[in-house]
Amino acid sequence: MKSLSAKSAVVSFIVLMGFWYLMSGFFDITHSIMGVISVGIVMAINYKLKRHSYFEGETDIINDLRLLYVPYYFGWLLVQIVISGVHVAKILLSPSLPIETSVLKFKVNFPNPHCKMILGNSITLTPGTLTVDIQGDEFIVHAISPASFEGIASDKMPQQVLKLFTNEMYPVVSDFEVLHSREELS
């Protein structure tokens, strides 16, 4: 069990209300009251689900997240998605198909499990890399070409994720290794 802050409740209320207005399309007083009642029921049902902690060391994400950095992070991610799309398209459309696949293994050191989730999604969306599995602190990542995992090897992307949660910077990735054959991948 973890404790939920008031900030978390307010943010989820605002998000659910926005969803209600978007789906109904009416802004008059009757529909607003119905919306408040539905949002209250949804939050009451989800209260236990949100308090349960699924992983060790899980914290209240809304309280820890630095909300000012979220738009900056999404902008950075969008640029990365465009770069990755063009990169993969270039590989696929060249007649010789210059792929050189490899599997990366590395350990991360993050303050909470949400960081790992965000990093896994970001790795999948950025140039030529795909998160295959996360076991504890160890990531297994499939890369399509050597140029594509420079961002992880140089610790640039994990630092961006860390910036979402805390101010102090420290190296996140350790024990970085690149596998090139089936025998090494047991």
């Binding site: 799309g85 993969v88 696949t101 999948t124 295959v132 499939h142």
Partner: peptide
């Protein structure tokens, strides 16, 4: 279209997943 071509051309399952997850999302 690039994502569709990738699913046909690439040699194994993991590289095909690259084609669907990146080119398709961008498109």
């Amino acid at each position: 279209l690039v994502g569709s071509i990738g699913i046909i051309r690439l040699p194994d399952f993991y590289s095909r997943t690259h084609a669907t997850s990146k080119s398709d999302t961008l498109g």
